[in-house]
């Protein structure tokens, strides 16, 4: 036991200061920022054709579809905008050219209060989003310091985190989980899959998004989003984010 303490003391504080201080460089991976055009105007045709998921249109980039493969970066686009990407409407993820500023931040769901309990539902993910979500509990992010806790049952949950592209098999279980949650409750779609189908868009037996399954309050794009971005989403839900003052 003393050796644990000694080691911990030696290592010092690892935990992020987010959201009291902006996320550090180490906490923000290269894929955290969505690709966008450097200036207003039509998007380069090469970038449009190279996108494997059709996220780049002639006039706008759909960040909800983007799987962060970075191909378009070789064709005139570059990572733009802030690290915090959480929005309240999926349409807000479609960034018009030249929009280097983030979409308007989502207002908090004040009814949830300051401490929230989170339940994770995987409706067809590759496991990366699951691990990023669980990652917010590790000492480097320490979600518990912000009053965010994981629960083992939707009965105790305020927030449902949905990861993965919805398969037919998971539609009913997802609905059951949502039904089992007490009101007030909210749903956060984590990653490109629940927003747009991600890399699996169009495969047979899959729903294109969470539309019509459960009402989604927040969208966090990314493939996968970084823990800091998931943390940001949870903070906007509970109204504890600096951005909302």
């Amino acid at each position: 036991m003393p050796s644990w303490i000694g080691q911990a003391a030696h290592r010092g504080i690892l935990t992020s200061r987010y959201p009291r201080a902006p996320a550090t460089e180490a906490e923000v991976p290269m894929t955290a920022r969505a690709p966008g055009p450097p200036a207003a105007g039509p998007l380069p045709a090469a970038a449009i054709s190279v996108c494997p998921v059709g996220a780049i249109g002639e006039r706008a980039v759909d960040q909800g579809r983007c799987i962060r493969c970075a191909r378009c970066l070789a064709h005139g686009l570059q990572p733009v905008g802030p690290v915090e990407l959480t929005v309240a409407r999926a349409e807000a993820l479609v960034a018009p050219p030249g929009a280097r500023d983030p979409p308007a931040p989502a207002p908090p769901l004040a009814s949830l209060g300051r401490s929230i309990h989170v339940f994770l539902v995987d409706v067809g993910s590759c496991n990366a989003c699951n691990l990023e979500v669980l990652g917010i509990a590790n000492p480097l992010y320490d979600a518990a310091r912000l009053g965010i806790f994981f629960t083992n049952s939707p009965r105790h949950a305020d927030v449902l985190l949905v990861v993965g592209v919805p398969t037919e098999e998971m539609v009913e279980p997802l609905r059951r989980a949502y039904e089992a949650m007490p009101a007030p409750k909210s749903v956060i779609a984590i990653g490109a899959c629940p927003i747009s189908g991600g890399a699996f868009r169009g495969n047979p037996g899959l729903r294109p998004s969470l539309d019509g399954l459960v009402p989604v309050d927040r969208f966090v794009p990314g493939c996968p989003p970084a823990p800091i971005q998931i943390l940001d989403a949870l903070l906007t839900v509970s109204g504890r984010n600096r951005r909302e003052g």
Binding site: L14, A26, E27, P29, M30, T31, I67, R68, C69, A70, A128, E132, G135, A137, N138, P139, L140, Y141, C223, P224, A226, P227
Partner: peptide, 22 residues
């Protein structure tokens, strides 16, 4: 878990993606 997160960050730093996609 802290160590695992450090490895992920390292992967992200070296390869540009925390999970080595792409």
């Amino acid at each position: 878990h802290a160590l695992a997160e450090q490895i992920l960050r390292l992967q992200g730093h070296v390869f540009g993606h925390r999970w080595l996609f792409g």
